[in-house]
Amino acid sequence: MQRRRIAVVGLTDDATHAFHSMLKIVDGRSRAEWLLADPEHADVLMAGDANHSPVVERWAMSRKPVIAVQELGQSPPNATFTLKHPFRVMQLLDVLDEIERQLGTTPATARSPAGPMDATRWGFLTSLHELATRPDDAHRYYAARTPTGTLAVRGDLSTFVAAAAIHTQLRRGALALPPLELQADPSPTDGIEAPGVVLLWYAGLGAPEGMAPWINPTGTFALRRWPDFGVLGAAREHLLLSAALSLGTFDVTTLCSLTGQSVTAVQRYLAACSLCQLLVASEAATSADVVIPPPVLSGLAGFMRSLRLRLGLSA
């Protein structure tokens, strides 16, 4: 469980005492372990009378989360996270857990060059990528919890378990998940078990817009081997992209031109292949990497036109 530090400024004595008591109540029920700290060393600030606090003004420059407290008789504060005093346990839990979802990253995510917004959007996929590149013990499970239920994946990524609704959302690309966390409980018993490659593939295809943080956006790409479409199901656009990357090494722009796919579709396909350890990516692209000699271009163009026709696409 992640440890988070929270500081309190500008609250009345009654509100401060109530919050300290609340922290003891939520201990073990929150997604993180919350510890009291001074503002200089805190991850989150809980503030009252925010408009008149120099501490809050300095805090705002750090872009760290702040919880604005509304006392009785005060107007609602203009803040992303707010709490009304007297506090209620479930409201406090909801706010703390939402902040943890925004802050929560694996060590790999924390080391990523992505900014705060990317860390939030890519938290689950980055933690999944970390596990894919350094698999863990097959007897341990990592879990991501959603309102629909829990998705648990075996440490070696051989299988994952989730409720039917989560499987459906995953394949539709409509599943928003927090970063994976090591699960202390024994292996999950509820839900449908499926091959881990299905999770890796569809998580990549449902990625946010933009290139995955661990992939060089200006690089060139090829495939080690085709995805296992017998297990994953074959979409025409993925067959086209796989055929292209089996014949040469290309950047995103060239792949879009060859296959008629959008930049977002190509980037998500690359994310899926990368998670499945199928992608060969260069560190950086040069003109020599992406310029195809005329004989190869002719052969590839003919092959792609033929493949598109066989798949029922326009030439």
Results as ranks from 00 to 15, higher is better:
62 S>K: 07
2 Q>H: 03
62 S>V: 10
273 C>S: 10
115 G>V: 06
118 D>E: 14
183 Q>S: 15
178 P>H: 07
269 Y>F: 15
311 L>T: 02
119 A>H: 02
186 P>K: 12
295 P>G: 13
291 V>F: 00
219 G>D: 08
244 A>Q: 11
22 M>W: 08
19 F>I: 04
294 P>I: 11
103 L>K: 13
60 A>Q: 12
102 Q>Y: 02
103 L>Y: 05
172 R>W: 08
268 R>A: 06
268 R>D: 07
182 L>E: 07
47 A>V: 05
7 A>W: 08
274 S>P: 04
85 H>M: 01
114 A>V: 12
149 G>Q: 02
198 V>S: 12
311 L>K: 04
180 L>D: 00
227 P>C: 09
295 P>H: 10
249 T>H: 14
59 W>Q: 10
130 E>Y: 01
116 P>E: 04
90 M>T: 14
169 Q>F: 07
293 P>S: 08
130 E>T: 06
313 L>P: 05
110 A>E: 09
90 M>I: 14
12 T>W: 11
13 D>F: 14
42 A>M: 05
162 A>P: 09
6 I>E: 07
120 T>F: 15
292 I>N: 00
235 A>E: 15
140 R>D: 01
24 K>I: 01
273 C>K: 00
83 L>Q: 10
173 G>D: 02
272 A>M: 04
259 T>M: 01
16 T>A: 10
77 P>M: 09
142 Y>R: 02
94 D>A: 12
185 D>E: 05
148 T>A: 10
249 T>L: 05
77 P>T: 00
256 C>I: 06
108 A>P: 03
50 A>G: 02
50 A>L: 15
205 L>R: 06
175 L>C: 01
87 F>D: 02
190 D>C: 04
202 Y>Q: 05
31 R>H: 00
263 V>F: 09
57 E>N: 14
77 P>R: 06
107 P>N: 03
49 D>N: 13
210 G>Q: 05
88 R>H: 14
243 A>F: 09
21 S>W: 15
264 T>M: 12
66 V>R: 04
156 D>I: 04
119 A>S: 09
77 P>K: 01
243 A>Q: 10
289 D>Y: 05
141 Y>G: 03
315 A>K: 07
306 S>W: 10
7 A>K: 02
146 T>G: 11
226 W>L: 15
214 W>H: 15
226 W>P: 08
121 R>Y: 06
16 T>K: 00
29 R>E: 14
38 D>P: 10
217 P>I: 03
292 I>Q: 02
293 P>T: 11
313 L>N: 06
58 R>D: 05
210 G>R: 07
179 P>C: 11
213 P>Q: 12
175 L>A: 11
96 L>I: 04
145 R>F: 03
68 A>T: 07
287 S>N: 13
52 H>T: 06
54 P>W: 11
51 N>S: 06
194 A>R: 08
82 T>N: 01
180 L>V: 08
242 S>G: 11
194 A>D: 09
256 C>R: 15
206 G>Y: 00
97 D>Y: 11
134 R>P: 11
166 I>E: 03
24 K>L: 03
139 H>L: 04
127 S>D: 01
16 T>Q: 14
173 G>F: 00
137 D>I: 11
127 S>P: 03
188 P>Y: 05
299 G>V: 07
256 C>D: 00
13 D>Y: 09
219 G>S: 10
198 V>E: 14
190 D>E: 12
298 S>C: 12
14 D>G: 10
16 T>D: 14
99 I>D: 14
17 H>N: 14
298 S>H: 08
290 V>W: 13
132 A>D: 07
184 A>L: 14
